[in-house]
Design a protein around this nucleic acid. Structure first.
Lengths: 201, 201
DNA sequence: ATATTTATTGATTGACGAGTCAATTAAAAG
DNA sequence: CTTTTAATTGACTCGTCAATCAATAAATAT
């Protein structure tokens, strides 16, 4: 059983340390040395593996994004009712791993990074599109012609609650956020919701 | 008619330049020299008047916040129906001045600044509280016991659309954003909305 | 064993930028 | 006028940090 690539270990340690450090300090103004120290290696090694600070940031972003994607897929699997699948997506957004203050703070900073880095911008777009089309697929049968707008609204809502979490708005935790998003959905899909309630009764 | 304080002129020029520069570059990593150059003065003068880069940033934030507050007040004045007043607030959020890409980008960066600066954090909180209580005052008669949640949702929605604007999501301009927020309100206040429609008919 | 590639670092470089300061100019006061 | 006070700057300091590099250690291959 050959011991796995050391390089892969180091890389992922550095990536994790990057997210963590950005999240903890709430800023992109973290030094490569800080990150490397947290990962238990020298800053030179970080440069060796990633080439530049920006590339390290991008790798960290990719990691967060793909982790999020995986969770969505996992949470949604098995569910077949469109509304349940939408709720699964929403729940995932506010799951303990994704809605951790550090991760949310990192997200916020990735948004900022996207303002200056084309690659970051592209990554974020990919994520947004994917979220949007995921939502849309489930909302089509629920909201018909309004589906696009509902999907846009849900996506914006989620980002809005993320910002609040980043600012540590005590009054809005994950549960409350989920409640407000589903509350919106209940209201906007009132016809369909009534159907659901009828079915349950 | 004594010519106004030179110092006030310089200060406001520097503040405007700060917002502009942060907005244009989409980052807090702007140099005092860049800002000063844009304002037509030396960087030493910026330090002379503001003491530090952070204080300059905070002054810029205060300016944006208070400009926003003034606009809200102006736009809302004269309207008496709660729903109209809510709509006025929403409209102001997406008014040409406030929803300019540069200003929105500056906002986003102020959110980031609030992660590392207590003063910035406090400023943002004041703004958030004020917006919330403004919304709440109007929503109480419209949504009764749900008013708090509706206000929180509206506030989050607005922030969500701001993020989208910061990312230059072509598909969502000011008009579309206003439409989606009011769409939400129409749906959530459906009882009241029906009353309104009935009144109009 | 030896050669070759990979992992790893300490030390260094070079740039950049916030903040200071002493000096200069302009305005205000007396 | 002269003196005091405010406005303004260029030049400088000092720290920080990304990125490089040469050197060493460890692993892999031959």
């Amino acid at each position: 059983m050959a011991r796995a690539n050391v390089s892969a270990l180091r890389k992922s340690a550095l990536i994790a340390a990057t997210v963590d450090q950005i999240g903890k300090t709430g800023s992109l103004e973290v030094t490569v040395s800080q990150i490397a120290r947290k990962a238990g290696v020298s800053s030179a090694l970080a440069h060796h593996y990633f080439g530049s600070k920006e590339q390290l940031f991008l790798a960290a972003m990719r990691a967060v994004l793909s982790e999020f994607g995986n969770e969505v897929r996992a949470e949604r699997s098995g569910l077949v009712a469109p509304r349940d699948r939408v709720d699964a997506i929403v729940r995932t957004c506010f799951s303990p791993t994704n809605f951790q203050p550090e991760v949310v703070a990192a997200w916020l900073n990735f948004y900022v990074l996207a303002q200056t880095s084309d690659q970051a911008h592209r990554l974020l777009r990919v994520y947004q599109r994917r979220l949007h089309s995921n939502l849309l697929a489930e909302l089509r049968p629920l909201a018909g012609p309004d589906a696009v707008q509902v999907a846009q609204t849900v996506a914006a809502l989620i980002d809005g609650f993320y910002i609040r979490q980043a600012l540590r708005n005590e009054s809005l935790d994950a549960t409350a956020s989920i409640g407000l998003v589903t509350g919106y959905l209940d209201a906007i899909l009132c016809t369909t919701t009534h159907h659901r309630e009828a079915q349950r009764a």
